[in-house]
Design a protein around this nucleic acid. Sequence first.
DNA 1: ACCGAAAA
Length: 572
Amino acid sequence: MKNTINNPFNSDLSYALYKTLLKRIPPIKFAPHLEDIVNLLTKALAKGELEVKVEDEFDQTQLKWPGWPESHLEALKKSGWTNNESGPIIFEDNCLSWRRWYEERNDVLKELFDRAKQNKTNCKETIVKFTQSLEKSLNQEQKQAVEAIENQHVIFISGGPGTGKTSTVLKMLERALLLSPDLRIGLAAPTGKAARRLQASLHKGIKTVDAHYQDAILKVSCSTLHKLLQSTQDGFGQNKQNPLNLDLLVIDEMSMVDLTLMKGLLEALTPSCQLILVGDPHQLPPVGSGSVWHYLHENKLPAHLEKSRVHLKKSYRNQGQIAVSSNLLKEKGLNSFFKLLFKSPKTSEVNLKVHICQQSTLPKKLLVQLHYHLNDLKVLTEKLIRKLPENIQSSREMGALEKESEDLFSCLDELMVLCPTRKGSWGVDAIHKAVLGKHFDEKVDQWPQGTPIMCCENLVDLELANGDIGIIMGERKNRWLVFQVMSEKKKLTTRLIHPARLKTISPAIALTVHKAQGSESNKLILLWPNHQSQCVQVNNNSSKKNTYDERLLYTAITRAKKKLDLFLISDI
DNA sequence: ACCGAAAA
């Protein structure tokens, strides 16, 4: 039953659920419209949405019975399925939702809001001294966040890429340690890659912190949320009975946390634990059901939360036209974005190029650029392997080879190719097939040297995370997978890994936008296959789809540091 | 229609 609710990917499952409901909770008065309601709710849940808005319109493919929404609501009312305490469906604020998810979300929000109500008190003198030292390094919004640590029990920090979220967190940790030096701090993120990135940027900025507190911050290790909570198949090892021994916990990349994980987290906290939640509400929601972070930013919240919320607006990344259009997308939506795109910009630096393609075969320009890029990588791997000593051990540190390895990885960071989907003529797989040719269906050992690859599992002892990108180097017996990892000494080092040690790897010549979340490159090529359909669908039920596409596009283009090539398919 | 994540 639980799985049917979690994975309702086709209408058969939705129909099965409907039949089960009819059997288990027979309607007081039956009407066929009930099937539509179950179907809509199931489909919404499949998309990660917990509710269906009554004011949304649906067409005949989504509804079997006429009279939406009045007839459906009446059928629901008479069925008794929305009865207090027992009915499976909730109808409130013009929204329909499953009781199970409705209650879970309300519980989580209530818990969060109650926590935020608690007050903290601190010694005034130390604060004054610290506040003076803040003046130089932080802007007004960032200072507000740092000051919140003094008396807010829960702090929400939102902001786009380059707004200094982590450097603000670093100053918050410093201040927290100043107030109580023995503070037990925890750091976590929803994915292995995000966890490591948080740790790395705290290390990078550590010099801005008073030397007295540096060690205390550096010694905190940053793990995935699942690991922190000791997640197993039967639930979380850290829970109400066995809470985390922490006074302060920082969670980064909150946009990827779903409801179940958030619930587990809140249950594992002691009442006194302070919470700092950090993330960008414009990025993609989690695939699982219920994005707490997006909900918190799209809905009216209790007044007492105002002091807990800090939004960082100022971006320190200057990207000319890329910055202008991504801001427009964020504020005005897809249509305005595409309108601006087709006017040639005069005012800011032109670093965004649009290519309109006639058919849906892969653009030739893309394949040519990839060809050169992969060749560069190949040359650099050959250079690196020639410098390699004999009898090398896997996982060794590179020592004198750092320069060659640095060249290789800066070349890798130069270009990123993104697609919204895996399948389809403009999907990631199509690009891999086009580039790898006959090698596509073969094993890794057949892929050519210089091919970028992605590690698809978290391997803590190898210091590799899911989503890490490396390169194939060498041939046959002398073949290695080269990665850059954060070593125990918190230094970026090159690591050679024997191909047999990684069970799940995939080519990484192109990536899905989802996978690229958190990565950046100087130059970005984005294939966006269906822009015209979005410009046409303005007012029907596509508002939710549009927010999804908006976030997808926003996430994609903000990966570009210097240049963006956007490929679109022409409407003709 | 499409897109993940984590753990043992």
